[in-house]
């Protein structure tokens, strides 16, 4: 069974065993607009919680994507590099950014659940 949580920086994390899949939320893609460039981390790279792990660019600006969780990158999603617009069309499934082997499950537990995130996103429209 997988569980999905959300960060205040508008990333989602889905945990399967000790592998977490990370992407940006639909709300984040709506704020960004048309996504035209994505940079994903290389496999094997070690990342800390809340550190910059990927880059997403819209026609307007570049934004960092942070890892809401510490661990080692196991895979980056090459299909979004080839077709960045797929992050807009399918942000919370096919548009995932990277997978990460987590170190500390309590980091995952401390993230927001779906209803808390939706409330948070609504209050932080801009």
């Amino acid at each position: 069974m997988s569980e999905k949580k959300f960060s205040k920086k508008h990333e989602w994390v889905e945990l399967n065993g000790d592998i977490a899949t990370v992407g940006i939320t639909k709300h984040a893609t709506e704020m960004l607009g048309d996504i035209v460039f994505v940079e994903i981390p290389e496999s094997g790279k070690s990342v800390d919680k809340d550190s910059q792990a990927a880059v997403v660019e819209s026609t307007k600006a570049a934004s960092d994507v942070y890892s809401p969780i510490s661990g080692d990158i196991t895979e980056g999603n090459k299909s979004i590099v080839d077709d960045p617009s797929s992050v807009n069309s399918d942000p919370e499934k096919g548009g995932w950014f990277f997978k990460i082997k987590i170190k500390d499950k309590s980091e995952f537990d401390s993230l927001m659940n779906k209803s808390d995130y939706e409330k948070f996103a609504k209050e932080n429209q801009n």
Partner: peptide, 9 residues
């Protein structure tokens, strides 16, 4: 207006 509902592209 920076963009409308259609988006920049």
């Amino acid at each position: 207006p920076i963009q409308y509902s259609d988006g920049i592209v």
